[in-house]
Design a protein around this nucleic acid. Structure first.
Lengths: 209, 209, 209, 209
DNA sequence: TATGAATGAGCCTTCATTCAT
DNA sequence: TATGAATGAAGGCTCATTCAT
């Protein structure tokens, strides 16, 4: 109806695009409120109000609160994993790849998805399904870091007595950044990414060891 | 305090003791449920049921849900700070004091208060007052670590380009431990404390830098 | 009625026919869902979905849910009354006419309108207007049976101490058939009609009386 | 606490009795509204309002709307079956027992449980569990009548070509009584019971057959 | 004619809190 | 102290209805 062009390349009609935009808006707002208040304390009324929408309208896009939050998780998870996959594909030496991965992660948390990243910190009060989804996403994540670290150790570039624990400490350190970064805006996300990556690499580079 | 009659000190103190024990029980259960589900998703019914008490009875000990959670925070905060103050008072060199402080903190999180420590990770959904209390407790905490680290740097024992960020990363790494420790029970809290302290000290001990 | 242009009678009537067919489809589906679930438990979404139509489209054919259900009632009522009027016009003796009327009624309920007949059983949850319509239809019905029965009594063909109650019992017995007939499919609607008519005539034919 | 008598024969304290009464009240009101409007169209607000209670209070007695209605069904079902069991135990000849059973049933529907009996007519819109419960109760019922009728036929007291259908017609006739009885209050429930039983026995007593 | 979007009103359910016993 | 009862407020979800396209 909209397109009169012979083929139908953009099956995405105006309506489709509008709908996609609405969904994107909802997810953005929902993610930020969710990250700010947690699942149980976030109510659809508030999400709807911020969007200047009625609560009932949300149900045109998501069949339940739980599905809405699952979509939020997916959105952030995809965003993160996309960034990290690029790093993983690099041919750089492991140490540099680890540096780059940390940096990428920091950028996602502080620049790309400052709102939603808190969700990943922990799963308090999330419904089962969401908790499982979260676990899946986290595991993809972990696998990627683990493989880089293992490689670095085998290559002799990294030295650490207990790689598993070092990695977990690193994740904790990174995941916690959103909870303090906004306060000390004395450096840009990019600068922070570099500083943090430098610093956390120390966890894997034996001093005297 | 309550009894002014020397004649029957036991009667009164027995009641007091009983009450104190009740409160202690409530706080223990409440803390663990709170840590497990978050503030909004924890209901008084459940707390009462675990205690084999009626919900209404809780109000004999705490005037509101919010006060209950404040008491939980205080209890953990006190426990933590007590441990840390001992470390702070030590005359050992800063590097060793930092090691000890990290170790003490890990022990609190994994051994002494495994249940409640998650509360400190994040304040999702907490009411304002609780959030403020949390901030105070955290600040005491931070001050203590900060002073040790500063001292260590002045003494030339620690080297780190950005002490503030290093410390925040360290806190994140520590705070996150409860979320993964139960899975890898391959070492005791004490062993973990040593390993973690060793590892995190690297953040403050320049490799080549 | 709609077309004033003799030139294109087909065009208009084709549209009309299409519309009539649509309405017929809607009524058929709506009637069966209504009979199955009751008024309050039936939603337009479901009706629309079965018809592969959007809910909003239903409003092109019926101004409201209530009007839709009124049309359903009318459709079944007409069907029933058409059958019965034929019986009423017959010149057969009252006893045979009663037999025939019962038989016709059974056929409507089990063969012609098996889906919708449950609506007539009871008016649970129906809106006022629908309830009134139902009453009207039922009364036409009742009048017809009543007149046959009265005639039969006057003619000495039927004997019953309390004709009013006997008739009401008969209606109950008939109306209830749809709720059990599908289970005992051991006889056809036609056979059932005969058996039931024979049996119910006993209500009006004194044994010893 | 209330009773100081040696044994504790009436463990039912005052509180217990009060609670039982409340439950009884709720069931009575709920049953009548349910019978009047059907499941879907009955809302807890209304039930609560009639009881001069808040809707939330209902949840002290029943965990859900569905459980409430199940309790209603049980209550009526028990009442009915209790009456009928007495009849079944009688040593009277089958014909008299059938007469008595019909009479008892009519009394339940018109005198003892005039409100709730409509529920048994059909199950439009009831949730699955309730529908199943209804079926169970109905089956107890049916078994009882069936056994009397079979016995009567074997004893040569009853004559009917198709006993199954005759019985179903009888049930329909009886079940329908509540829908018209209130209008014709020209006779008492007891009188009605006799008239109806006399009349319906004709279904099982062949005229010429 | 057809429909996606939007929504107000309403319903079931939960929960912190109060109160009488 | 202990608790059953009661409730207002709130939250998730449904649905008939309207409207712009």
């Amino acid at each position: 109806m909209t397109s009169q062009l012979p083929a139908e390349p953009d099956t995405v009609s105006r309506a489709d695009r509008r709908r996609a935009k609405r969904i994107e808006d909802i997810l953005r707002i929902a993610t930020s409120l969710l990250a700010e208040r947690g699942y149980a304390a976030t109510n659809l009324d508030e999400i709807a109000e911020v969007l200047d929408l009625s609560k009932a309208s949300l149900y045109h896009y998501f069949p339940s609160k739980e599905h809405l939050i699952l979509a939020c998780l997916d959105r952030i998870g995809d965003s993160t994993n996309r960034q990290l996959r690029a790093v993983a594909a690099s041919a750089a030496p492991p140490r540099d790849r680890l540096h780059e991965a940390i940096r990428a992660q920091v950028l996602v948390l502080t620049r790309d998805e400052p709102a939603g990243s808190a969700i990943f910190i922990h799963d308090l009060g999330l419904p089962e399904a969401a908790r499982n989804r979260l676990r899946e996403l986290t595991e993809q994540h972990d696998r990627l870091f683990r493989s880089i670290i293992d490689e670095g150790i085998r290559a002799g570039e990294l030295h650490v007595p207990d790689p598993a624990i070092a990695r977990l400490l690193m994740h904790g350190a990174i995941n916690f950044i959103p909870s303090w970064y906004h306060r000390s805006a004395r450096m840009s996300p990019e600068q922070l990414g570099d500083v943090v990556a430098d610093e956390l690499l120390r966890l894997f580079e034996g001093g005297k060891t």
